[in-house]
């Protein structure tokens, strides 16, 4: 399949890129292109112009910023996976990123691109939501921080405004005592997650003190399993954990599609949350 025609520009600065986008409502940001190009090839999108931000230095790299890790929007999944600070201070990001697509796609696909694409079946959005990441957006009007909980608005829709570009995401470092797991359930290695569970669990004295759990593909956006988080607080790793995790499907509205119906997804969310929490708790 062949994309329809579009214009192309590769601005030399972030400011210039913002201007380009502000000037044309139908223009789209081109990051690594790993989600966008298949859409263009299938002619499911007809942008007038692609604004290629792939080489903007302001969006590059993974940086240690003391209390948080700043992942530049154009850091590729591969760079994120290789990042020392990610592996040391937010390993959940690495665990989930390792399951994104395949190595070749991870070489091109970007962390920011995955977030801005806001696909609830993507692996990265749930992790950023679980970790209370803060997304940084820039426009001609300046920069603003968007908490992950406010970033994902609907299916393939983020709260980025016209003319705004995602610069990167701040992932708070959780400190000692936390364990992590990303449990992804898929039919084949390449397939999208039917359900995914990102779990961070802090244990001390044999009990779960605190947890952060978010679900992939259980709603039009990634969702936090707040009911489970609340139920788990202070709980021993005994039989009740399963019951607490059974709350994970509360407040979800999973899609029904070719690969799974909503009731099965809800069931999986319960089972997989239990597995994710146990593994996260065990990995402390």
């Amino acid at each position: 399949m062949i994309p329809a025609q579009f214009g192309y520009t590769r601005p030399g600065s972030l400011a210039e890129a913002c201007q380009e986008l502000a000037a044309d409502e139908e223009a789209k940001v081109l990051a690594g292109g790993q989600s966008l190009l298949p859409l263009l090839r299938m002619r499911l999108a007809y942008p007038t112009k692609l604004v290629d931000v792939g080489r903007l230095p302001e969006l590059a790299g993974v940086h240690d910023r003391g209390d948080h890790v700043f992942i530049g929007a154009m850091a590729t999944h591969d760079e994120v996976l290789r990042s020392g600070v990610v592996n040391a201070d937010c390993p959940l990001v690495a665990l989930a990123t390792a399951t994104v697509a395949d190595p070749a796609v991870r070489h091109r696909g970007t962390f920011g691109g995955s977030l801005a694409h806001a696909d609830p079946a993507g692996d990265v959005p749930a992790v950023v939501l679980a970790l209370d990441g803060v997304l940084v957006a820039r426009s001609a009007d300046g920069e603003r921080d968007i908490p992950a909980a406010e970033f994902f608005v609907d299916y393939l829709e983020s709260s980025l405004r016209q003319g705004e570009i995602l610069v990167g995401v701040k992932i708070p470092k959780l400190g000692a005592g936390w364990g992590f797991h990303y449990e992804k359930f898929q039919r084949t290695a390449q397939a999208w997650a039917i359900v995914g569970v990102a779990a961070a669990v802090r244990r001390s004295n044999g009990a779960i003190q605190e947890s952060r759990i978010a679900l992939t593909n259980m709603a039009p956006t990634p969702v936090r399993a707040h009911a489970t988080e609340t139920a788990l607080a202070g709980m021993d790793l005994g039989g009740e954990v399963r019951q607490a995790c059974a709350e994970a499907a509360a407040d979800t509205s999973p899609p029904g599609d070719l690969h799974a119906q909503p009731d099965y997804r809800r069931h999986l969310a319960r089972v997989l949350t239990h597995r994710a929490v146990r593994k996260a708790a065990g990995s402390v």
């Binding site: 192309y8 081109l30 292109g33 190009l37 090839r41 190595p103 070749a104 796609v105 070489h107 091109r108």
Partner: peptide, 19 residues
């Protein structure tokens, strides 16, 4: 369609020539 682009594997059907 996998090729090496600057030393890393990519799927050349999902990269624009301009990129």
């Amino acid at each position: 369609c996998t090729v090496m682009l600057d030393g890393k594997s990519v799927k050349s059907c999902s990269v624009l020539a301009v990129q």
